[in-house]
Amino acid sequence: MNKYKRITLDGLIFQNPTFMLVLGTCPTLGLISSAFSAAGMGLTVVIILTLSNVIISALKNVIPNAVRIPCYIVIIATLVTFMRMLLEKFMPDLYDSLGGFLALIVVNCIILGRAEAFANKHTVVESAVDGLANGFGFTIALTLMGIVCELIGSGSLFGAHIMDFTIGIFATPAGSFLVYGISIALFVFVIDLFEKAKRVKINKLARENMLDKEVA
């Protein structure tokens, strides 16, 4: 049980893909000007990430090492295309608001990153938990920033008009960058404050490992 708790906490907080590892930045910056799109993108990634983790983990003994990356990409691309069809059929509003970023989930580094760093070494159940935890870590981060950006930038929340005072820049990429940057700083600051001890060190190691792998 402890193992799953650890995976969950890592995905949600200590290795939060958005704030700690700073992965999947393109959809984050592109969509947090609206809380609805941000939450929608987050939940879409949860589903795709969990499914891709499960499938890749189940196939880890079948896929030869040499062609693993192309295989992962094909599997992820299939899942993204499938999600795109589902959304277009059943949630056309969300489909419209996600726009081009829906197709770009394929190259979202979180998904390929988790496949490479976790799913191909762990069991199906662990990978599923990891997918859910990371996905929800991403979703929560996006939704929180989406709420901030939409409230200040458009004076509304999930599309409902709240106030007339707005600062237009927060509805643009400039505001998204600003909010994202400050959010990371706050997050790191709070984590540092409460968890000064070893957790952070482990985390830093993990982060360096991750970056090393990406470059390699």
Binding site: P64, A66, V67, C71, V74, T78, F82, M85, L86, E88
Partner: peptide, 30 residues
């Protein structure tokens, strides 16, 4: 050889994914 295995696995995955999507497209086309 391993190369053959690689090609087989990659093509199988491509084929399975392609068939899956084609079926789904038939069901979900708007």
């Amino acid at each position: 050889s391993t190369s053959f295995k690689c090609i087989c696995v990659l093509l199988t995955i491509l084929l399975v994914c392609g068939i899956f999507l084609t079926v789904m497209y038939g069901l979900l086309e708007v």
